[in-house]
Design a binder for these strands. Structure first.
Lengths: 117, 117
DNA sequence: TCAGCAACTTACCATAAGGTAAGTTATTGT
DNA sequence: ACAATAACTTACCTTATGGTAAGTTGCTGA
């Protein structure tokens, strides 16, 4: 998708309710976001490397970037354990869990689309 | 979003159901796709210029590109009236109409997200 | 004769997202 | 002494998407 990320979503010049949709897409539009959601959807927090293994072939750089953005957007929590080597666990927030509806809708429609060919 | 368009969606290397989601996103990921859907959602077919006015400030180039892709993806119909100056009407197909679920899910979640700040 | 119209097409350019590959940190096990 | 480890960061590059501005078509009304 090409919904660029924004720092502040401005609904001012959006008299209609496009804004809500734009918000959703700007937040979920990253190439790996929904896959990260999927990895964490079970409820169990995962470590950086565990997520990375699940999403392969994602790069370290991309994974950190996407995780940071999702954290900023309050979709997931990041817990740092002060040990060496480092240990960091990521889990879904309440807002993160509320993505389920979108996930299901996209999955269902995708199946419909694929079937129709 | 950064779900690049594909000619054939390959589910072969996708043992999980990610494929359906990827299909959805690759098809809806265009910057204007969901706005075009929204414009046509009432059921009434619209002309190129009418859509353009509704979506402003979209460029001619982008609008044609997005419409063409949606047509290829069987989301909308394109009816050409052989008159001069040209008249072309776009409307939703059955598959196009089935996007409603995604539309609603994105809209609802976006509202939730915006409220939580 | 010629500007105006709708629906394009074309050439060119700007931006952003993401990839690759390497480096960083501080401790622990060999 | 030193390689290994997890979770990054950095510099650099490629690609895709979309924007701008101009041109095209063929008839019609002034």
């Amino acid at each position: 998708m090409s919904y660029s990320r924004r720092t502040t979503i401005n609904c001012e010049n959006n008299p209609e309710s496009d804004c809500a949709i734009e918000a959703s897409l700007s937040i979920l539009g990253g190439k790996w976001k929904l896959k990260i959601y999927k990895a964490l959807r079970s409820g169990k927090p995962l470590r950086f490397t565990e997520i990375k293994t699940l999403l392969e072939p994602i790069s370290d750089k991309s994974l950190t970037a996407q995780l940071r953005e999702m954290e900023e957007d309050n979709l997931l929590t990041r817990e740092v354990y002060p040990v060496i080597p480092p240990k960091v666990e990521y889990g879904l927030t309440t807002l993160g869990n509320s993505l389920e509806g979108i996930f299901i809708a996209l999955e269902q429609w995708g199946k419909t689309y694929i079937d129709q060919r």
